[in-house]
Design a protein around this nucleic acid. Structure first.
Lengths: 258, 258
DNA sequence: CGATTGCTTGAGGGCTTTCAAGACGTGTGG
DNA sequence: CCACACGTCTTGAAAGCCCTCAAGCAATCG
């Protein structure tokens, strides 16, 4: 990864770090919740002062678990996986992170998981030392970080819910629903779901074997629930069946009126 | 639950809301990490102004998923479970919360999960409206909330890791290790692990059937890994075997030098 | 002391995992 | 432009683990 690159070109047209999340305590009428850019142009500009832009090729490591924490990252473009290594050699992926997400969760001064680029990635690097002193003086900015953390916490719970499911089809349906929601939250079209990661990474995220993921997609296709255009693009054909699978265990409180 | 009780007696001797967590960006030498009270007496006193004390009996509901968010809670004593209902009727427990923890995670103005007292509970109730305006003016307090959220995020990831495990024994070992760590973090003795929840709740947390939990404890006992004094107290007899089970999948980076 | 709740234990079935081989697709070199 | 080679994905068969259903046991409370 190219660290501390004073990349002028990349900064051009960028306003600075961006945090996408919903305000947890206010109600919105928009279908996608209230996912939006939290930071004002001014806040982004102030953060840009302490940030540098880094680029990673696909598969490149951003940081490793156990390393001393020197910075947290804010993704500009691309997809990152946060994972931890298991004893048997394979990894367990905690989360996929997209543009507007923060990563670099730490404990006791060290990263608690590793991060690696799933696609080519551009990100702001925010040194913790500078960031912390910056945060202490800016309550508004801090509040936005709180909103973002709340959102990540919800995602983590949703992920735990997903992996807790024992059957393959509900798992995959929930996974696709998760990606679809994120895609919608980013304002991208959702006629098709984009899967930037490969089947192995999906398996490591949902907690199944690679073979089971393959079989699951197959079965969903045969049943007419989804249509796999290619390995990166999936379309929901039977929304009712899809929701039934995805909501089988996850009874989401979306229809609770007033 | 008794809401808005101006409980003078409960407030006596209490300094106000307390948030226990580790500072994510600084290194500590203490074995239990740096888990400590984050708020200063002054901060706690300022929060106490907007807080009221609520009490719940065992099994009582604190809030339900889907309800409009009016307050978040800070546990003074007792244990709370955060859960969401599944379609089949049983629940999935996201987390057990102890003294010093915050609960009341929300999305789009509504609680995203339900909370219920596992034991008799005393907690501060902090109305979100007042809290938010309070937070906006106090960067130091906000920073502590950020620290706490980071900690909850780690817990959520650890939980996801736990439920992702497919075998019963590693799951239970990780669960016991989790409780032990929390117990140590609270400064309580760890010669014995205290299980305030019943077997059903353990099953709903680790993502197994009640029967499997029972069988798992049995097997751990037979193998001499643990000793079950009674249903609420477990002792680790064979630490090596225990760690082998718990760390089988969770390779924690605790021995990385420098 | 009896009843209710919580926990344990047994047997059969279903699902995923594992191991392994084959198909697909992509990128490179001729 | 085609052929080859590699990595990725799919598919098959046997085995293991936990789940479900159900009955028996223990502990708690009135």
């Amino acid at each position: 990864m190219n660290r501390n690159v004073p990349d002028i070109k990349a900064s051009v047209g960028r306003k600075g770090p961006a945090i996408r999340a919903a305000h947890p305590w206010s109600v919105s009428r928009r279908p996608e919740g209230a996912v939006r850019q939290l930071l004002s142009d001014d806040e982004r500009a102030r953060l840009a002062v302490i940030a540098s832009v880094v680029r990673c090729a696909k598969g490149e490591s951003i940081y490793r678990a156990g390393e001393p924490v020197d910075a947290i990252y804010n993704i500009i473009s691309g997809v990152v996986k946060a994972f931890s290594a298991e004893a048997n050699g394979s990894d367990h992926i905690h989360a996929f992170l997209f543009a507007g997400d923060l990563l670099g969760l730490s404990d006791d001064g060290r990263y608690v998981n590793s991060a690696e680029a799933v696609t080519p990635v551009t990100a702001y690097q925010l040194p913790t030392a500078k960031l912390q002193s910056h945060l202490r003086r800016d309550a508004g900015l801090e509040f936005h970080v709180i909103c973002k953390l709340c959102q990540e916490l919800r995602q983590a719970q949703r992920h735990a819910f997903l992996v807790a499911s024992r059957e393959a089809l509900p798992k995959l349906a929930m996974f696709l629903q998760l990606l679809e929601d994120l895609q919608a939250g980013r304002g991208e079209p959702i006629n098709e779901i984009h899967l930037p990661m490969d089947r192995t990474e999906i398996a490591e995220f949902v907690g199944m074997s690679l073979a089971a993921v393959s079989r699951g997609f197959k079965k969903l296709t045969v049943r007419g629930v989804i249509e796999v255009r290619n390995r990166q693009h999936v379309k929901i054909k039977d929304r009712a069946a899809f929701n039934e699978l995805a909501d089988l265990s996850a009874s989401r409180a979306s229809e609770s009126g007033a």
